[in-house]
Simulated assay, not measured.
Amino acid sequence: MSPLPQILRAQLAATPAGRLPFVQIMELALYHPEHGYYGAGLRRIGRQGDFFTSVSVGPLFGKLLAMRAIQEWKEQDEPENFTIIEQGAHDGQLAEDVLSALEGKSMRYLIVEPNPKYREVQTKRLGDRVQWVDNLAALQTGPKHAFFLCNELPDAFPVHLVRWNGERWRELFVEADGTEAFRFVAGDFSCDELAEEAKHLPHDLETGHTLEINLAMLTWIRELAHAAFRGAIFIADYGLDAEEFFADSRASGTIRRYWQHHMDGHVLEDLGACDLTTHINFTRLVDEATRHGMKQREYDLQGRVLGRMGLTWMESLQGKVPDRATAALIRQFNSLTHPAIMGRSFRCLILDKPSAP
């Protein structure tokens, strides 16, 4: 049992109102430096962990991204300082897969990683093949040409929860219920930015409809817009269009708790011991990116995007009897793209980013 719930109860008791916005609870549950789900150290992914990612399927995902990086490098006239930038690199497996598939192309690889525990694991795996920076602000001075990638990053940003009461949107706060549990309670918005964002939400939903507002995602895309590089930004994540995001069928929101491949909506239980994740509103993300000078280059289900990225590779296999390694890659391709496996669960967005203003 994680000691985090007891820490949270002490924090709640110390606040004048005895409650905190859910965004702060989620921040601590995921990123508390000692007891947070991610902050405490590396989490096992795959069959022995709490969830699967495209990276845990095998090296093909990295190979496809390497092919896309090479394509981007060529489209930028093969600059010498071309850099692949990854954020949310976890244990460095994706970086290793991409680097191994670059076909001899000499490209700089840069990881944005603020957590020293994760950077230590990445260093052991990748050695001097990679460089690191602590945050996106470090990218404002360079590189000038890049391919930026992230896999399942914004879905783990802490979010505000809001609920429609039939007349207006109200924020959900968390308080202790007098036992060992926590409960939600509605209140006025905790910050002006949230109040401003809520103005754009629909007002024709059923009473009790709950939504996530991911202000951190909007801050993140604005920080990316101010990075010095020009090139493409590749984002793969759980997500929905706005129409789907606001649908009546999702009246309880998209936030979910993951533990040992089980998913449920009990997001205030076992805090610190379980992953918390949400679907991102891709429509809102694209709107904010466009407002800051980026353009949508491609957006689709992961199966379709990766299928197009891998078309040349698949065509090169026609008429050949695959060896064991190639057969394994073909199975990985099916897992990544088949709609019944990962092809429909994830979506990919590729943005065209000009140089910073």
Rank of each mutant, 00 (worst) to 15 (best):
D287K: 13
E244D: 13
A328N: 05
P116F: 06
L351F: 07
T312W: 12
I84K: 10
A227N: 05
D192F: 12
P116R: 05
F234Y: 15
V57N: 02
L271I: 12
V23T: 13
D128L: 08
H203Y: 11
N334L: 05
N165M: 01
H292K: 04
G307R: 07
A40I: 00
P154W: 05
E223V: 00
F82Q: 05
G343R: 04
L301D: 11
L306N: 04
L136C: 10
R256Y: 06
R129P: 00
G142H: 12
A10T: 14
R344G: 11
N115Y: 07
G239W: 12
G18S: 02
L139S: 09
N281I: 01
N115V: 01
M67G: 07
C348K: 02
E197V: 01
L4N: 03
I70A: 09
V55G: 00
R9G: 09
V159D: 01
I221W: 09
G187F: 11
N281H: 12
A13V: 03
F82V: 06
L60M: 09
T179Q: 14
V130C: 01
F282R: 05
Q24P: 00
A14S: 14
E315F: 04
A227W: 11
G253Y: 10
P339Y: 11
C348W: 01
G293R: 08
K144T: 10
R230W: 08
H145F: 13
Q296W: 07
Q140W: 05
I280D: 01
H262R: 15
K353V: 00
G39W: 09
V55K: 02
L194K: 10
I45L: 14
F61Q: 00
H209E: 01
H160L: 00
H261E: 11
Q6A: 14
